[in-house]
Amino acid sequence: MEAIKTIELTKMYGQARGIDHLDLKVEAGDFFGFIGPNGAGKSTTIRTLLGLMRPTSGTGEIFGLDIVQQREMILQKTGYLPSEAIFYPNMKVKDILEFSSRLRKMDCQKEAKYLCERLQLDPFKKIETLSLGNRKKVAIVCALQHRPDLLILDEPTTGLDPLMQKVFFDILHERNQEGTTIFLSSHVLSEIQRHCTRAAIIREGKIIACDTIDVLAKTKAKRVNIHGSVAVDTLTGIRDLKEGKDTLSFLYSGDMLTLLHTLSTGDVQDLSISEPDLEEIFLHYYEKEENI
């Protein structure tokens, strides 16, 4: 069963594009990454899925429920961690958490207490006295305390220190093991690469790639680093070319044999051909589109 499924989902802001005929599928139980730079439509996708905005056209479903017609049933099963953790400043942390669980008509005290302890969050502090990181922790507890089937996280780690990030991802992995679907939107690629099993890349409101992290990272492109001097102008399929004094580095997605032939004609003192990291893949996807 799909946790998230959109068909040609479109959201326009007047004339401006938000998302454009977006097709996205996330299987239940996935730890899914959603990658894209600022303004690509990540938050718009999430807000439309959660019913904060109405789609201009197209449809979306969460656990088979329609995002426009069955919004409340969806939200009951969903935990959302917004990128900006903003609450009522005069309220105490525990009052916010209680208010949130009352809006869900649930009693989440036990889970809230457990999460606060694990994240080292003082529930008796007032929101207005909290730092960005601590506000983020409140948002995390709000998103998790009712043990939702689907977690939608929008840039979850901004403001969290590395130790807390680890605790946070530990919790996410535990939840994922228990069957919770996790949808992690981020532009921190290492985060996605480390934690997610599948990912989609969004660019200008459209999904341009969606697969397992392994497949995404194993595109034909390789990172080629050369120490020495070779004329590579004749090669096709070169991207991200960086030339130093005695060095040459580029992403190569052309024919391997041609590459080896070309390299053998030059003066190569040292050579490495490696898998590019997701960061480079990401650039690769973006530049590929731009070349068209």
Partner: peptide, 14 residues
């Protein structure tokens, strides 16, 4: 205005 709408409306409240 206070940006709390996102918090409030991401709960199952019509």
């Amino acid at each position: 205005k206070d940006k709390t709408a996102e918090f409030l409306l991401s709960h199952p409240v019509t």
